[in-house]
Design a protein around this nucleic acid. Structure first.
Lengths: 184, 184
DNA sequence: ATGAATCATGTCATGGCCTGACATCATTTG
DNA sequence: CAAATGATGTCAGGCCATGACATGATTCAT
């Protein structure tokens, strides 16, 4: 049912656009009542976007042998890289990616939901006891930003019909990030 | 009127919390109709948060003598640093800062609005012709993240009743950021 | 000063999102 | 078989947001 609703939601947004798609439409498409949609998803946004719980879990539960901010960041980005390559295989990841570009509002939905990621990750980092609050917050923001930028780049390629290797796209993002801070 | 509404909105959120404060409450407090509130602000969120148009304008219109990604980032962060110190002088900046910590949902409001900043800045950077799309996007995300982290840190100090120098807080954020990418 | 145009505001209606309360039906379980 | 459980529908209501239109004030040209 969860998937039925999400599929219907994505179908409808592709057909009619985001703004024109109401929860009632989605419910009707699935053949359930509007109320039922809200039983499965806390909001219309969540029905459209599966959320990043997998990413959150992976990052929060990841271990790091390093004890420096830069080492920890590196490990977290490695986790992202790994997960990103798997995500692409998910059935609806590409559809959502295309919507990210075609419906600007979708990116806001994503960004809003990613707050949970930043909050969970930063507090998990603080909890490890190695990093300060500011460092943890900063790292969580950077990791999230990387994920979003890589994803958005991937999405652009998808829409343009170009084939792209998600992993190398992620690597490129991280590489560009590193180049922003030259070794002086 | 713009300020009247915002003040009333902030007053009410401080008194009753964010969730309990309706647009009707705000309108009643100011003595206008609900409809009028929406004439001045496109949404309840905007009434609470003045938006970052000043920051957007400053960043987008800033000039940079540098032609490397790292140089441009450095200049953009300098603009932020400058603006940040001014923002703190604004009458309601501290109030909003406190709400950022006390009402978690407020941070989501901010984050959502900051999408405009990322979009405007990244497309402005692309337009300068020096940076690629991915680089521009990445820089815009980093700049925004820095602003948010510095602001959030400032807000935490505010709530804890500690005095803090916003500029040195911003500097610290940038410094920590740099340390995430060790010169190898 | 007058009449028209403009502007700010209010009122009303509507639609979409979301939640709580309760009824209903099917499934499971003892 | 009967009770408990769970999934779903129905209904009511509140809040956010927008469009259409009326009204009163202000401005401005004559």
């Amino acid at each position: 049912m969860l998937q039925d609703i999400q599929r219907a939601a994505l179908d409808l947004v592709e057909e009619q656009g985001l703004e024109a798609t109401t929860v009632g439409d989605i419910a009707a498409r699935v053949g359930v009542s509007e109320r039922t949609v809200f039983r499965y998803y806390p909001s219309k946004e969540h029905a459209l976007m599966p959320g990043q719980q997998g990413l959150i879990d992976a990052l929060v539960s990841s271990e790091s042998a390093h004890h420096t901010p830069s080492g920890i960041l590196e490990d977290l980005l490695a986790v992202c890289r790994e997960l990103f390559s798997h995500e692409v295989e998910q059935r609806d990841f590409r559809r959502i990616s295309r919507l990210l570009v075609q419906e600007p509002e979708m990116l806001r939905v994503v960004t809003r939901q990613e707050r949970s990621l930043v909050e969970a990750l930063s507090s998990a980092l603080v909890h490890r006891g190695v990093l300060g609050t500011l460092q943890s917050l900063l790292i969580a923001e950077i990791v999230t930003a990387c994920w979003r930028v890589a994803w958005q780049s991937f999405a652009r390629y998808e829409v343009d019909g170009m084939d792209s290797d998600p992993v190398s796209l992620f690597d490129q993002t991280v590489r560009e990030l590193g180049q922003l801070f030259p070794s002086t």
